[in-house]
Design a binder for these strands. Sequence first.
DNA 1: CTTGACCTTCCCATGATGGGAAGCCTTACA
DNA 2: TGTAAGGCTTCCCATCATGGGAAGGTCAAG
Lengths: 135, 135
Amino acid sequence: MNIGQAAERSGVSAKMIRYYEEIGLIEPPGRTESNYRVYGEDEVHILRFIKRARTLGFSIEETTLLLGLWQDKSRTSSEVRDIASDHIAALETKIGELQGMVKTLRHLVHCCHGDDRPDCPILDDLAGAPAKKGH
Amino acid sequence: MNIGQAAERSGVSAKMIRYYEEIGLIEPPGRTESNYRVYGEDEVHILRFIKRARTLGFSIEETTLLLGLWQDKSRTSSEVRDIASDHIAALETKIGELQGMVKTLRHLVHCCHGDDRPDCPILDDLAGAPAKKGH
DNA sequence: CTTGACCTTCCCATGATGGGAAGCCTTACA
DNA sequence: TGTAAGGCTTCCCATCATGGGAAGGTCAAG
């Protein structure tokens, strides 16, 4: 099948398939006489694997690792689990950061009367003013 | 003061200060005879404002808006609050997505025995295998 | 006067993706 | 058989915010 169909069947855009090939994440496929890329079921399967990993937030680099482990019969499941565990830890760090931002913003919004007056605790905070007590 | 000191005092790198100037987020400062940028307390204050907004996860675009509102005496606090509220909503969407990833990964890691055997539910899932019941 | 630390501009890289142009190929239809 | 539409190819550019580094000018301390 051509790249368009492989894209549709895997959920990875044609642009991205070519990019993955370029960076060596996937092997260059065969070509027709007229230089069209030709894919089979196996390639679609690999692309779906990649798609799923990306959806779970793994970076291309981590995905490369996982893909290697997937295709390596002698891998140990603990290798994969370590990658996944590390990734969970990274995601949780990120979540914590975002939650910190939300908490601060929520407090500021709560303190902001939000009417036609220009007085605004949010801007005061951004500008580095000391927080007023007792809102 | 020179750019290096402004950077140190504001927490914004010299590279970024020049970039912010280039994209019009901040005004071009005065120059010495030898073409060095010259900053004063006001500029450091603005840079700190920007730094804080960025730390809270506002994009450059949102920061531009907030900066404009900060310097606009006729602004209404509701304008600022709307920006902040929108930003909170965006952050929470992002947090939800990350939490979804963590939940899935956690389940997979829980199901993975993580030893020397190659059998690995995480890879099975990435490869699109139907989940086994009961783990 | 030298040396080292600072400043200037300019270009390039990141990570993952999309947009689009120019040109070739295939398929379907009149 | 001719043509038009749409798919494919490569190549370049843009994003967003940031950092790295080179080449060259400037300043301050010794």
